[in-house]
């Protein structure tokens, strides 16, 4: 299995972080960065990373199933994650989630037919004081109103980069 030179370089860096006989430590970081490039954790990827980390595909499969960010099926180009945990719930996380469902026509962990968006109701993402919060891929958005959500999703659908969307600012940078 081949990866982009950038990802290969990253893998090399990951593997160098841990003692030589502890390559398995690099497994989870490798999985999550590989997922970003490959789209999901495929069987082929499992085989490949098992080989590179000195584990068995069974061991990798066990790991993949444990972590909620690792997906066996590709999510959308924009994976919209809305927190409805307690702090967000108290400040409208529920309404935001419902709006996202309505807006995209998707439910929990569903992917749009064209692969553009996917939706996930997620657990606390560490933005409790700036609730309700959401993430699109790895970008954080704080204090999002249902109206802002519409604007954000429309802008992304229209091909705008997150940085270019003035109305709803991503805060993580």
């Amino acid at each position: 299995m081949t990866f982009s030179p950038a990802l290969e370089a990253r893998f090399e860096k990951f593997l160098a972080k841990y003692p030589a006989d502890r390559k398995r430590s690099a497994l989870i970081p490798m999985l999550i960065y590989a997922q970003d490039e490959v789209g999901s954790i495929t069987d082929e990827l499992i085989q490949e990373l098992a080989r590179r980390t000195g584990t068995t595909p069974m061991q990798v499969t066990e790991v993949v199933g444990f972590y909620s960010m690792l997906q066996r099926k590709p999510m959308g180009k924009y994976h919209v994650q809305i927190c409805t945990n307690i702090s967000c719930l108290l400040r409208g996380g529920d309404e935001l989630w419902e709006q996202a469902c309505k807006k995209t026509g998707l439910g929990h962990k569903q992917v749009a037919a064209d692969g553009s968006f996917s939706l996930e109701e997620v657990e606390c993402m560490g933005a409790c004081s700036w609730a309700p919060a959401m993430q699109v891929n790895y970008d954080f958005y704080h204090g999002v109103t249902p109206k802002q959500l519409d604007v954000l999703l429309d802008s992304l659908a229209a091909g705008k980069k997150p940085e270019e969307i003035a109305e709803v600012k991503k805060v993580s940078c």
Binding site: D43, P57, M58, T61, E62, V64, G65, F66, S68
Partner: peptide, 20 residues
Amino acid sequence: VGALGVVNRGSVSLIAPNHG
């Protein structure tokens, strides 16, 4: 042999075989 593993998490955890 290591042909069996645990997949998923929590109450939906299951034992799984090594070849899918």
